[in-house]
Design a protein around this nucleic acid. Structure first.
Lengths: 219, 219
DNA sequence: ATCATAAATAACTATTTAGTTATATCAAGA
DNA sequence: TCTTGATATAACTAAATAGTTATTTATGAT
């Protein structure tokens, strides 16, 4: 009978609580999440959660900052700075799609924070730091494409970032109601493949000049 | 002292409860909504809510069906069937934008239902009926544009519907976190005007052939 | 008029929940 | 080895919450 050995490992305990919180907040939102469920899933207990994180909302904020940080890190790791602009854009659209698909908790956590009008991250220094250079990378990519006479000039990098995220995020966050409204399984392998292809095409049509598009068509 | 006259008007009471529920569910989601708050806002009481609607989740389902119905009705009322295809598409994109902007509860209610994997409307006959003809109208519009050699042929109407919604919905549902990430007020009058213009341009670039786009540019 | 029924209100209950108090146990430094 | 502080657990509490029971009151049919 494995006697319950009480291991002391504050870092590991914190990590387990954060991981459990991410699952629970993603599944039920901030309001629907239960601190007892988080403690149980972390194989810890409520008192530890309050000891390390103070309260439920602080824990939520830390989880949210973490998932944003992971997303930004992954995007940065793409290293698109020296890719050919059209290739880079294709990769960026695919990256967004794959990331949201593989990390569905990102979507539900962000949705939950927006329901609360972003009050938890509003004054977060860490969020602000993370966001820096994020738009800058898109701007640089658009500039390179424009210089090579591939893209339209004067494209707004923020609008592009939002749109690139939107066409993936919206499809996936509303996949349940969407599957009912459109009377088809939006999550079937074929549906997912088709949507990604459509999204890549969409973004290229937004940024490329008519001449570039003609060239792409006849390739 | 206005003696509290007890007016009896079941239809009006039901209507007030539904209206109050819409506000409360939109503000706090299904989980965060409080039945006491709904009853108070409706200037009725909890017992009436349970009398007429059975339970909180049924009330939620009815509210959700209602906001979907309103949205579909409004879209139908646009009567785009005989408009010139490009004009019709511009109007459709603007309609989506304006509707989400003027009816923010639609967005939060749909988000809440997706957090719950659409379980409340999954077997709703009314939802299924509403969705009919919805894709059909987009398909007809795309067909007309293609026949007039304005649009690409073989555009997928469902993908278009989703994208038209996405570029508006995503911007607005994530406006709070977005305003932090992009370090600008996404809801300023100028930002809203710019986004709508960008969205119209986006959709035209998706559907129009390079030739049509060239013509539009030089107009 | 009066009766039956539906509409409305208020007070109540059993549970759930975030957060706390009290207590035990480990491990590192003196 | 003893002490001290950090780590862990369990039992508790006050408030909140969905749903009910008990009671009153208006209204339309007879």
């Amino acid at each position: 009978m494995a006697a319950k050995k009480q291991l002391r490992d504050p870092e590991e305990t914190k990590r387990r609580i954060m991981a459990a919180a991410k699952v629970e907040f993603a599944k039920s939102g901030l309001g629907g999440a239960r601190v007892d469920v988080i403690a149980a899933r972390a194989k810890s207990n409520k008192r530890m959660m309050y000891h390390y994180f103070g309260n439920k909302e602080t824990l939520f904020r830390l989880v949210l900052e973490d998932v944003y940080a992971d997303f930004r890190e992954a995007e940065k790791a793409l290293e698109l700075d020296h890719e050919e602009p059209i290739v880079a854009l294709r990769k960026l659209v695919s990256f967004n799609w794959d990331y949201f698909l593989e990390n569905p908790e990102f979507i539900t956590l962000v949705n939950s924070e927006n329901l609360h009008k972003a009050k938890h991250i509003k004054s977060s220094k860490r969020m602000q730091e993370m966001s820096r250079n994020f738009v800058g990378r898109m701007q640089a990519l658009l500039d390179r494409g424009a210089e090579a006479n591939l893209f339209h000039k004067n494209l707004d990098a923020v609008q592009m970032q939002i749109s690139v995220a939107a066409i993936a995020y919206h499809y996936l966050t509303n996949r349940y109601t969407g599957s009912i409204v459109f009377e088809r399984d939006l999550m079937s392998a074929k549906a997912l493949k088709d949507r990604l292809a459509f999204n890549i095409q969409t973004v290229l049509r937004i940024v490329c000049t008519p001449e570039t598009l003609r060239k792409l068509e006849t390739e």
